[in-house]
Nucleic acid binder design. Sequence first.
DNA 1: GCAAATTAATGATTTATTCAAG
DNA 2: CTTGAATAAATCATTAATTTGC
Lengths: 222, 222
Amino acid sequence: MSPAGSTRWCPTPQQLMMLEEMYRSGLSTPNATQIQHITSQLSLYGKIEGKNVFYWFQNHKARDRQKLRKKLIRQLQHQQQLYHHQQLLHYFDSPAFPHLSCYNSAPPNLLPQAGIHDEAAKQVMNCTWNFDIPGRVDKSKGMVRTYGSDWLMMVDVGPPPPPSAPSAASYSMMSRPPLKTLELFPLIASNLKEECNDNSNSSNSLSPVSCNVKAPLIQPSK
Amino acid sequence: MSPAGSTRWCPTPQQLMMLEEMYRSGLSTPNATQIQHITSQLSLYGKIEGKNVFYWFQNHKARDRQKLRKKLIRQLQHQQQLYHHQQLLHYFDSPAFPHLSCYNSAPPNLLPQAGIHDEAAKQVMNCTWNFDIPGRVDKSKGMVRTYGSDWLMMVDVGPPPPPSAPSAASYSMMSRPPLKTLELFPLIASNLKEECNDNSNSSNSLSPVSCNVKAPLIQPSK
DNA sequence: GCAAATTAATGATTTATTCAAG
DNA sequence: CTTGAATAAATCATTAATTTGC
């Protein structure tokens, strides 16, 4: 880290934290005086000069704005999808875990719950690992939360109009409903350049539109 | 382990491993649908319900972050201590930084570098953050720009009319000009708390000594 | 060895914070 | 500016590890 011969500034953790704190506190474009002040302060924690501070704020602000734009755009795509979605009248469900294949092949002796810290289990596990998880975080909506002492599952359910989709799309977490494998809806390509393809397709894929059905859960008591 | 009459979920080794694998794979905040799927899958290996999965991710994520923060802070304290050693050589004890006062008053036992998770450090930290920043963006002018390969700082100095303010209001950032005391802005609270003192005093029991000021409001609750 | 006593982990709740919609 | 949804942080509470005196 910041070797003596390094050509560029390498902020120490303290410096970073302090800069971030300042930024969060509302300072985004420090003037010369402020920069100077800050520089002096931060120099207590490591080598630093004014331009570093200057650039840092410049960059940070820019990247923040960029993030915002991205978010906005995702939002737009979202809406777009929703629209499509409604016509398709398919309520989604994440394809979440289509894999899992090897579970069924797990040796029966593993099934019974028991707190055995069984070494051998490890091997079996290796097989088990093959789920894949949506590449790096799936932010699709659908919430689970407590509601008083009950548990709620909030699931997006297709469009309200078509009654075909049963409102029973929400149910108690306590019961173990049979899983359905639902199909995924197509991703809508947008013509928004850049900023769109973080490939994460993160925050959407599910439509928030519809009615959020809250299902009061049966409490197992305690 | 996980006796029948147990009040709380006790994950089987398999369940744990699978959860961890998912987490490592990037899933940190499963939505309702995902929770459901996971729950169903894991129920093959032992009793489990949705909320357990929900909580597990919640906690795991939080504690991961916590570990990170702690690490950072230890690191910080370390560096800080080092720096004190190296450059307590004033040159910053100019009246320009009255708010740095706490450095100078830091108890000597903090100075020696050592990985002591000293309780007192917390205060130092808190104090450290006390720069103040203009409450929500300061629009005062003053620019910093490159000038050739040098950096210039243009500062507004007082009102133009009173010629008392020298015109030499701009100078290179490279040299460390005498600092002026700038107006301080209102205090910004930092949210960096705790975590410095592992001292724990965790759940119950005693540990009276530490002067951790925390309103021990006795919660009747429930 | 082994069980009471302590301590550390971690599941479960509650409270605070953030962020965007109205 | 207010409000509600979502999330993160803080806290409580129980279980597992471990230490300790016998």
